[in-house]
Design a protein around this nucleic acid. Sequence first.
DNA 1: GTGGTCTAGACCACG
DNA 2: GTGGTCTAGACCACC
Lengths: 125, 125, 125, 125
Amino acid sequence: MIIIDYQDRTPIYEQIVDRVQTLIIKGVLKANEQLPSVRKLATDLSINPNTIQKAFALLEQQGFIYSVKGRGSFVSPNPGSGIEQKREDFFLHLEEMVSNAKDLRIELPDLQKKVQEFYGEAQRD
Amino acid sequence: MIIIDYQDRTPIYEQIVDRVQTLIIKGVLKANEQLPSVRKLATDLSINPNTIQKAFALLEQQGFIYSVKGRGSFVSPNPGSGIEQKREDFFLHLEEMVSNAKDLRIELPDLQKKVQEFYGEAQRD
Amino acid sequence: MIIIDYQDRTPIYEQIVDRVQTLIIKGVLKANEQLPSVRKLATDLSINPNTIQKAFALLEQQGFIYSVKGRGSFVSPNPGSGIEQKREDFFLHLEEMVSNAKDLRIELPDLQKKVQEFYGEAQRD
Amino acid sequence: MIIIDYQDRTPIYEQIVDRVQTLIIKGVLKANEQLPSVRKLATDLSINPNTIQKAFALLEQQGFIYSVKGRGSFVSPNPGSGIEQKREDFFLHLEEMVSNAKDLRIELPDLQKKVQEFYGEAQRD
DNA sequence: GTGGTCTAGACCACG
DNA sequence: GTGGTCTAGACCACC
């Protein structure tokens, strides 16, 4: 379910955050469902528990999960604001990319065509 | 001409590389035109010369500029391969973004609309 | 009567202590009235009996309830000292808050107004 | 400038966050001023660098400071949103306290009097 | 020198 | 058993 790419330069804890976020958004992880414990995930991925902890802390701060001391971590029933935040970030990023495209002398029709192509290829859920 | 954003988390030398690349692609910097010296740029931007040096080394490696010992750095007359590389990177990045869009439940038409919108808004050269 | 908020970060046993305290202070629980047994409360709230036990021990220590071996727990006829303690804690806490308000550049009149407003809104008994 | 209370149950990193926040809000730390380095603060307070790091990361996320790799950490020129957030949290907390006051049978006039008293006593800047 | 990430191992409060 | 905090020490990229 959660795959770490050690070649990738993005920090491990961010990869985990991202992965869990999309699992929640896609509905694979359902509201109030319990996540694997920090320690279990750590041993499963053979990663230091502190790293998982950091990822979970971020996810909690963003409203995707909530943690209860002594019981575990759970999917937030209403991660709405976190998702909205992610969408906003996406569009900001997109704007920058499109600007780059223009600088690279990529014409709008070509760009649109590629977008459509990639959209079709992207993994179906 | 070259603006550094210190708040941005991308390394300064990368910001310089990127900026010079687009200046060349856009034709603002013409073939064989001399670039400002490492020292001058360093004092102008009040940045450590090592940082400029690193940026120029990368640019030379990518074929955007060439350096002549004792004379300075110049815009390469044929930066084609560098540009191609940049285009490829762009599309790889785009593919990833479109995949993200799908995960975020953004529909293709909405995505296309935004792309068009941003394309129109992007700075005219 | 007793509601647990699992999302709240304050320990469950403290939530119980607090809840029972106010029920006693408000007179909902009358002097010498018998409290539900540890086991019953535990199953009713689907909570570990140890947690209830801890809460009751604290309440007894603070003079709000007394326990009789083999019979159960009862509301203390004179929880005065416990209430006084709670009042003192309240004012200490208040002092700290007011100090924070000043640091946040909240003016005294605004603060007073908010206090009055909240006091009016607070649940009538 | 920054004092740690080891008796206090609130985590060290939170104490640091809180302390730096008020120093910024009070204007003791000015916009774009450089903060002491993570390592220096760590040795000064005889605390592990990781703990300081955690505090600074939070402060950055809240918009109070910004950090530049290789250069240091600086006071954000516009910590507005962070301050607003703090004010909101304050009023939420206040509402809860006032509700407690009512439960404790503290009359509004007495409460107001205490607030005024504490406000006067609070440290002048 | 700086901030940032990660590991290893410890301790605590909570259930 | 759980999450949370902290220490000690290492390594990296950046300037």
